[in-house]
Amino acid sequence: MSLKEKLRVMVVDDMSTSRGLITQALDSIGIQNVASAGDGKTALAAIAQSPVHLVISDYNMPEMDGLHLLHYLRSSPPTQKTGFLLITGKADPAVIEKGKQLGMNNFLAKPFQPADLKSAIEAIVGRL
């Protein structure tokens, strides 16, 4: 079983368009084990039910933003090491710095091509 076949991913974004785009990009890379959620709480509940290897989350979301979500993931032992890829609108140094402090694995600024997403994921989990 290749890495991309076994990789389980959770996509979190409040915009269904973005969820669709990311899922579509993942699909084109060959990652099909993808769940998605429209907000952090739903994502956490889904992950608790069915764990994932990698969370790809938008930064800018109402209620719980991407970094809050990361913070929750990191503060619970089972998800302390879950991969976390933050999608940001712009590469804001302050956001990246905080993400780094909270233990984010990588980030990707919008807009991106599937190839960019692939390299961002490969930087976390190794060659796909």
Partner: peptide, 14 residues
């Protein structure tokens, strides 16, 4: 903005 960013991806082994 992007020039100032200092970030190294954190690798994870499955």
């Amino acid at each position: 903005a992007s020039e100032e960013i200092d970030f190294q991806p954190m690798t994870l082994s499955l």
